[in-house]
Amino acid sequence: MSLLEFFEWLGNTAWSVALLESIWVYPLVETTHVLTLCLFLGMIATLDLRLVGLTLRNVPVSEVAGRLLPWAFVGFALMVVSGVLLFYSHPVRAFENVFFRIKMVMLVLAGLNAFIFHTTVYRRVTEWDRSPVTPVKARLAGYFSLMLWTTVVVSGRMQAYNWFN
């Protein structure tokens, strides 16, 4: 079975059809997906802006990360659950949409960027925790994160339009 055939089968399951056609649930899931952006991206962007030196320059980086990232994770969990539900309601339409594919690639890249940041330069955060100007690698991670999450949001929004199918 190809991936497309699997998604065709998935989109024809009773729960998928029910979700797509529901009057209240689908809009509620979509609203959750959009509004959780504030919690998830709001916290991530605050940390990124600290890394690039645009806000909270007097607050230790480890404190911004330690206090805000747990909330970002809560937001991320909600975004993934609502996002998977949205995908489940129309898998074929999403799969064939170029913006959806771009979004998935950007998601992976954003995750990779975060992983590299946390396993390299952030390991030595005690050395630069309190400095308003962070090391180049940390600043780069901040800029990459802001850029990648922006493209995730933009391609996610553009998924509503299927110009290139």
Binding site: L37, C38, L39, L41, G42, A45, V153
Partner: peptide, 11 residues
């Protein structure tokens, strides 16, 4: 801008 506004209000 929503994400930014939400973040600034939330923090």
């Amino acid at each position: 801008a929503l994400a930014m506004l939400g973040g600034a209000v939330l923090v």
